[in-house]
Each structure stands twice: as structure tokens, then as C-alpha cells.
Design a binder for these strands. Structure first.
Length: 218
DNA sequence: TGTCCGATTGGT
DNA sequence: CCAATCGGACAG
């Protein structure tokens, strides 16, 4: 019988599509504590979501789908909820989003940071560092650590390759809110608090100057 | 076809 | 603070 290391989380059943069929702003905080898992020929790599940002569709001027822009790049966001919207940025990094809402409603949640939970050696090899805090503390980093790229574009997240699973639950008091990172190009929605992260988690990509607890004033 | 630039990261 | 590095978006 194979020994399972106590440090390695064993993911449960994949969350089904219904879980994702809600607005991005509501889905983002609900994703905190979930396990993001990717099975590849090399093995399983998984991490607990500790930071996520909501991109709310045509009205959100920070979103790729602002104004209803529908191109080959944004197409996945227009599809049904629970699929992967992956995009390349700066010619060298990929960012992973979970499609939210409903078909025809281009909303998504950007996964910004994970707390490594399984396959740490695999992540370390892919990232070129052994430091746990550096493995998945950023949208580009976690894609590299889990080997998520354009090959996963549009992939349904309810299968056995790339999926989310229940892991831990957090109360609203343990969840913080702040404006989104690097969206200064936006105007109306630039300061809207749509970034959600676990309070005091050292795995968050970076701590904002000002933030508040979920459901309270900053 | 040409130009501009980014939902980032890592090193000065 | 700044460079890396390139496909998407858009103007012409």
C-alpha cells in the first residue's frame, strides 16, 4: 500500500458546474479555501485558493470583456460557467480564470494566489525555487507551478484533469477585500473592491495598503 | 500591415 | 524603478 504523506492534500470530488453559475463578485470569495488541482502525466499539483479577483463583464472597464468585446481571446468567458479562461500576458506569463455567471454573460474570476497543498516537489521543479512562499503567490507563478497554459483554454473544470474541490471553509471575518491589482488603466471600476483574500495568509501575492473585512467598511 | 501595450515577474 | 517578450486589439 502506498504511503500518502501527511503534508500532501488528497483532493476530493470536483465541484460541479452549478457551483460556478453565479456572478463573479459573488463567486470570487466563495472560491477561497477551495483546492485548485491539475493532473498531468508528471503527477498531481494542487493548492488552496487564498486570493481571487472578480471581473464583472461588459460594464466593468477593467475586464477583458468590457463593452462586450468578443474575440478569439475572450471567447471562453462568453461560454458556460465552470470553464477555464486562460490568457497570456507580457508575452511570457499565463493567467488562469474561472468562468462565472451564465453563457453569454462574460464574467470571470482571476485566481491570484494559492497555498501549495500537493505536488510541492513538482511545483518547485517547474518554478525553479524550493521556497513554498514563492511557488504560487501570483497569477503567473501559480500557472507555472501547476503547468496551466493555453493548452487548457476553455477546458471544463468539472473533469478529472483540471478541477476545483472542497478543502477548507472560512467565515466572512476571515476574508478581506480590497481594490484589484494593476488595473489603473480602468476608470470607473478602478477602485471597486473586487479582490478577495484570506486574512493573514502569507501566500497572498501582496498585501494592499488598505483593506477591510468582508461585509464591513475599510 | 504597423504600432501600442499589458489582470506579471524578477532583478537593479 | 526597469527590462523581458510577444500575441491581441485596433487604427489605417
Amino acid at each position: 500500500m502506498k504511503i500518502q504523506s501527511s503534508a500532501e492534500a488528497c483532493p476530493g470530488a470536483a465541484l460541479n458546474r452549478a457551483f460556478f453559475e453565479t456572478g463573479a463578485a459573488e463567486l470570487a470569495p466563495r472560491l477561497l479555501g477551495k483546492l485548485l488541482c491539475h493532473r498531468t502525466p508528471e503527477g498531481l499539483a494542487a493548492g488552496m485558493i487564498v486570493e481571487a479577483e472578480a471581473y464583472c463583464g461588459p460594464a466593468d472597464d477593467a475586464a477583458h470583456s468590457f463593452g462586450g468585446r468578443r474575440t478569439a481571446r475572450t471567447e471562453a468567458m462568453f461560454g458556460p460557467a465552470g470553464r477555464a479562461y486562460v490568457f497570456r500576458i507580457y508575452g511570457m506569463h499565463c493567467c488562469f480564470n474561472v468562468v462565472a455567471a451564465r453563457e453569454g454573460e462574460p464574467q470571470a474570476v482571476l485566481i491570484r494566489a494559492l497555498e501549495p497543498a500537493a505536488g510541492l516537489a513538482l511545483m518547485a521543479a517547474r518554478r525553479g525555487t524550493e521556497e513554498p512562499l514563492q511557488l504560487c503567490s501570483g497569477p503567473g507563478k501559480l500557472c507555472r507551478a501547476l503547468d496551466i497554459g493555453m493548452a487548457q483554454y476553455g477546458l471544463a473544470l468539472c473533469g478529472s484533469e483540471l478541477f476545483l474541490a472542497d478543502f477548507r471553509d472560512f467565515s466572512p471575518a476571515e476574508i478581506c477585500v480590497s481594490p484589484r491589482v494593476n488595473v489603473d488603466y480602468a476608470e470607473a471600476w478602478r477602485d471597486t473592491p473586487l479582490r478577495f483574500f484570506l486574512k493573514d495568509s502569507p501566500y497572498v501575492s501582496r498585501v494592499p495598503r488598505r483593506y477591510g473585512a468582508l461585509g464591513t467598511l475599510g
